[in-house]
């Protein structure tokens, strides 16, 4: 009898794990098809842009290949030199969206990084490749913060570097500023000031995966100068979350676009 009950228990546990695994499998295939759909939709929508890019005599073959192209799971970072922008593919983590959900300080993080599951948008692309894309576009990194600044208080400082515009779009949603989809938990409504902080040495050292941090950061490639370092973990001024009425459902693929601010 004891053996039977142990067997039942083992089967129950195996069932739970198998359920999780099969869900994961179907989810990732859904992600691939969703990304493919997004790519297909965007490809047709941006056919004009592609055509004009190809027609441009000055554009290189690579530039022509990436112009207007949307990122996919296989090619999650598109550096569009012609448009002077980077398009980055990620998906929404519903755990950080809405007032009853959790809070965070990360907007976009590569899913393979240590913070890849602690962000509003998990990304498919490596943050170091993203950094290289920013450099290739000629953006100037700030590199002015250190881990000491992350302690906040008297050490708090704001990130410097190229001022950027960061937008988001997904299937059925036109491009809009990503800041429209994020809110401070303490109700502060100040505008975002996105900066190409750089920080590649620490990104290599820490492997957090951070692409876009919501407060000034010594590790994230891009972060927000509107909020000083230490705003969240150190000084506990506030954390942030996604807006449920703006962002799509959990797991939906989105394209985040980074370009030099006008």
């Amino acid at each position: 009898m004891k053996k039977i009950s142990l067997l039942v228990m083992t089967l129950a546990l195996a069932g739970v794990l198998a359920g999780c695994a099969s869900g994961s499998g179907s989810s990732s295939s859904a992600a691939t098809s969703s990304a493919a759909d997004t790519a297909a939709t965007s490809a047709s929508a941006s056919a004009d842009t592609s055509a004009s890019a190809s027609a441009s005599a000055s554009a290189s073959a690579d530039d022509a290949a990436t112009a207007g192209e949307d990122p996919t799971v296989d090619n999650p970072i598109v550096v569009d030199k012609e448009k002077g922008e980077i398009r980055y593919l990620g998906f929404v983590d519903g755990a950080y969206v809405g007032e009853s959900a959790a809070e965070t300080r990360h907007a976009v993080v590569f899913e393979g990084g240590s913070n890849g599951q602690k962000t509003i948008i998990s990304g498919y692309g490596d943050e170091k490749e993203f950094y290289q894309g920013c450099i290739d576009l000629g953006w100037e990194p700030g590199n002015n913060l250190t881990l000491e600044n992350q302690k906040g208080g008297e050490n708090a400082a704001t990130i410097e570097g190229e001022k950027l515009e960061v937008t988001i779009r997904w299937d059925g949603q036109d491009e809009m500023p990503i800041w429209d989809c994020i809110e401070a938990a303490n109700g502060d409504t100040r505008e975002a000031d996105w900066r190409f902080g750089g920080n590649i040495d620490r990104a290599n050292e820490k492997n957090t995966g951070c692409v876009l941090c919501i407060d000034s950061c010594a590790v994230g490639i891009v972060s927000n100068a509107a909020w000083p370092s230490g705003t969240t973990d150190a000084d506990k001024v506030t954390y942030f979350r996604g807006k449920a009425d703006k962002l799509p459902a959990d797991g939906t693929d989105v394209i985040v676009t980074f370009r030099k601010a006008a």
């Binding site: 794990l17 999780c20 695994a21 869900g23 994961s24 989810s27 990732s28 859904a30 992600a31 998906f91 983590d93 519903g94 755990a95 809405g98 009853s100 959900a101 959790a102 899913e111 890849g116 599951q117 998990s122 959990d250 797991g251």
Partner: peptide, 17 residues
């Protein structure tokens, strides 16, 4: 959300609904 998030985070199944 929270228990489900915790469970999927533990097995790194980020896109598990």
């Amino acid at each position: 959300i929270i228990p489900a998030k915790m469970i999927r985070e533990g097995i790194s199944a980020t896109k598990l609904p």
